[in-house]
Amino acid sequence: MKPGLFSKFNTAGAWVLLLFLVTPALIAIPVSLTPKRFLSMPNGEYSLRHFEKLFTSEEWLSSFFQSGVIALSCSALATLLGTLCAIGLWRVSSKYSELVRAFLLLPLIIPQIISAMAFYRLWIPLGLLDSYAGLILAHTILAAPLVLITVSASLASFDPKLEQASKNLGASNWTTLRRVILPQVKPGIFAGALFAFILSWDEIVVTLFISKYSVYTLPRRMWNGIRENTDPTVASAAVVLIAITLIAFAVSAILSRRNARAQAE
């Protein structure tokens, strides 16, 4: 069927919309290059002073570091728990396990503000407010469903008979898990770990509630900068974040292409 006039018109519109989705963020680049001390567009002159400030400021650097530590720990913990859980659910595969799966996806769909409230409520008596442990635990609970989804997706195409075959050939449960199941779900685990990292790295709503002084993540500092709305350092931080996003995206695209090729072979 030949594409009609309407279809062509729609495709043009879709391209405009897609560019509308991506381009606004790019304004951070000129703003970060302004030579002035306040947020403004550069007027013919450019300066890197705000990047210099970003990378020499103790506050910003410690925020980068803290966010990195929290996101890596969250990613590791969520990947471990989520992968085990996905394999367990796949093995059990009953009416009850599907209920449990639906229940475990709730943290993903329940509004963040309610999650924030819940963690805040419980972290007060547990003494976890404003601590690494508190943030890592909260982010892990929010991120584990992502790992559950990606690993389950890898398992969906996995023939359970292979597991049976491995056991019949004398492999123990542990060996079967390590040598047969895990290699199969590796792409799901990597994707899940990456998603979990990004979720934690970018999380602000829950973080606003359960952190205060001693833990000050990067989104928290960005949030502050945005609210104060004066210091251009926040623009240079935004540029760094965009760069990190693009790199992470490229890495994941290459990985998934390699996996697709491996599966095709």
């Binding site: 960005m222 945005i226 974040l241 965009i242 695209a253």
Partner: peptide, 21 residues
Amino acid sequence: TLLLVSFWISILVRTFAWLML
């Protein structure tokens, strides 16, 4: 690619961008 990149850009970066725009 465009769709997913926009999906991945931090909410704070985007909010900041709107503030500037």
